[in-house]
Design a protein around this nucleic acid. Structure first.
Lengths: 201, 201
DNA sequence: GCGTTATGCAAGTAAGTACTTGCACTTAAC
DNA sequence: GTTAAGTGCAAGTACTTACTTGCATAACGC
């Protein structure tokens, strides 16, 4: 075991920054941008408030860095690679990936919806993963329509599909007790209705 | 034409209150609770800030009164009366009513999602209409399943149905240019996919 | 006319909040 | 050992904001 080298004041290099980013995220999710104070962030991070400003310069810069950090990259190769041509299975995989990503930035998505400047950095970053997946969905729908397996407008279908997942993720935030079912079950149900409809016969 | 009686200072009785409620709503939608100041509200209402406090006592009380005022009553008799047994037509009417109500309190719904205390007065009031309609949907689904016209879990179906509309209303907020289609068309499309699925054949 | 009520106006208070500064201390690098 | 970097601590600044107060005024009910 390599001995961890302490940088200063008993902290690992970069640790202070990380603690601040993490605390910021937690408080943003709970109270929103305006509701969160730099003092609270510093306290929750176990760091002095002055240190916060020495690292990030301003509260806005910290928030931006935080959002950027937690929405970094979207690697979708694995998702694309996992698609094997089986319509139902593919859609389930897409829905599952989408649900996972949306859930992981749900708080930031809500923030971006509520903020006056919904198209700022927060809005852009929070929707990065969903938007990327949306492209995949739209392309997928178009192909399957061309192949005669689906019918309708590919864009409408893509939006509908995204919406199914989105509404579930948001529903779980507002009504946690109602939406307690297993994500796998939910995905299965959603894809089933999406493909076959609810009509009997 | 009866001559309007002025109360004081050239204002109709109750007018000041209304102006304040209206201004509050507009600013809440644009900047959220914390982002809105009492000075701004008073200015936008064309009223002195002191008058605001004389009427409502505190900013919180004003916000509560505002939300309560704009989410007052939900009369659903008309909706229920309009249902005639035709499955497709009924679902369209329900979806249409739901969409209208959700759209009219969309800003407050978003606020309730973003607020730390999502279950406060705002959350309760904003979801009042949607929740009432949700009951109608669930009952409707159960009946139609019993009649053999639909299949599945009535609660899941109801949530799915609500979610279709919810995601559309929210999508229009975030991506206005993309979601510019006519509401009627959207409802038709949604109900169609909901009933028959997207699969061809 | 007279009292009541609603309002405007201007000034002020108390608290919070983003951000700064100067100093001491610890640790790592050389 | 010396230097430099990162941090804690305490105090402070400038600004915002919810909320108050005292006074003048205009309209209404009687």
């Amino acid at each position: 075991m390599a001995v961890q080298q302490l940088h200063t004041a008993g902290r690992l290099p970069g640790e202070t920054r990380l603690r601040l980013l993490s605390a910021t995220r937690a408080l943003l999710a709970a109270k929103g941008r305006r509701g969160t104070t730099t003092r609270e962030i510093a306290d929750q991070a176990g760091v002095n408030e002055a240190t916060l400003f020495r690292h990030f310069g301003s509260k806005d810069a910290l928030v931006d860095a935080c959002v950027e950090y937690y929405c970094r990259t979207v690697e979708l190769e694995e998702l694309l690679a996992s698609l094997d041509g089986n319509l139902e299975r593919d859609l389930r995989r897409i829905a599952s990936a989408l649900m996972q990503r949306m859930e992981s930035v749900r708080d930031l998505i809500v923030m971006s919806l509520a903020e006056e400047d919904g198209n700022g950095i927060v809005g852009e970053a929070a929707w990065r993963a969903p938007t990327a997946i949306k492209k995949i969905v739209a392309d997928y729908m178009a192909k399957r329509i061309a192949a005669g397996e689906l019918s309708g407008n590919p864009l409408f279908l893509a939006r509908f599909f995204m919406g199914m997942v989105f509404s579930y993720v948001m529903g779980r935030k507002r009504f946690p007790e109602e939406y307690a079912a297993e994500p796998d079950q939910v995905v299965e149900f959603q894809v089933d209705v999406f493909l076959n409809g609810a009509r009997k016969g």
